[in-house]
C-alpha cells in the first residue's frame, strides 16, 4: 500500500456515502462494498502506525497485527473493539453460506469503532 492510496478517513467517508445514497448502480452491492472500504480503512491506519514505528509488520496476518497493536496502543479496550469490528467487516466481505449481508445499522456501528481507531492512530 502506498501513500497515494486514499487516507483512512476518506475511505470511511466513501463507505458511509455508499450506505446513505440510494444508487441503482450500487443496489445490492453496497453492504459488501462499504464493508470492504471500512476494512481497508482499519488496515491502512494500522499500517501507518508500523510505518511510523519502522516496524515491518505490514506483511503479517492482520490478526497478528491487531494482537501486537495491544502492546503499542495504551487503549486495550479500543483495540479489542477494533479487532471485533475488523473481524466482523472481514466476515461481511466474504461469502458465507447461510449468512446474510450486514444491515446498515450494523455497518454503522462498526464504522464508529473504525472512526475512533483512525482518530487515535492519526
Amino acid at each position: 500500500m502506498t501513500r497515494e492510496e486514499s487516507r483512512p478517513r476518506d475511505l470511511l467517508a466513501l463507505a458511509r456515502e455508499l450506505l446513505r445514497r440510494a444508487d441503482p448502480l450500487t443496489a445490492g452491492l453496497w453492504p459488501r462494498v462499504s464493508a470492504l472500504l471500512a476494512l481497508r480503512a482499519v488496515e491502512t491506519s494500522v499500517s501507518r502506525l508500523w510505518d511510523q514505528r519502522a516496524l515491518p509488520l505490514q506483511s503479517c496476518p492482520m490478526r497478528v497485527q491487531l494482537i501486537c497493536l495491544r502492546s503499542y496502543l495504551d487503549d486495550g479496550v479500543l483495540v479489542a473493539r477494533a479487532a471485533h469490528a475488523w473481524s466482523a467487516l472481514n466476515r461481511a466481505c466474504h461469502h458465507h453460506p447461510y449468512e446474510l449481508a450486514p444491515t446498515a445499522a450494523e455497518l454503522e456501528s462498526w464504522f464508529l469503532v473504525v472512526d475512533e481507531l483512525t482518530a487515535k492512530l492519526a
Binding site: C60, P61, R63, V64, C68, S71
Partner: peptide
C-alpha cells in the same frame, strides 16, 4: 500466533 509469524520483526517479538 504472533511468535509463529514468519518475518516477525524482532523488536515487535520482544515487545509483544
Amino acid at each position: 500466533a504472533v511468535a509463529g509469524t514468519a518475518d516477525l520483526p524482532s523488536p515487535a517479538a520482544a515487545r509483544v
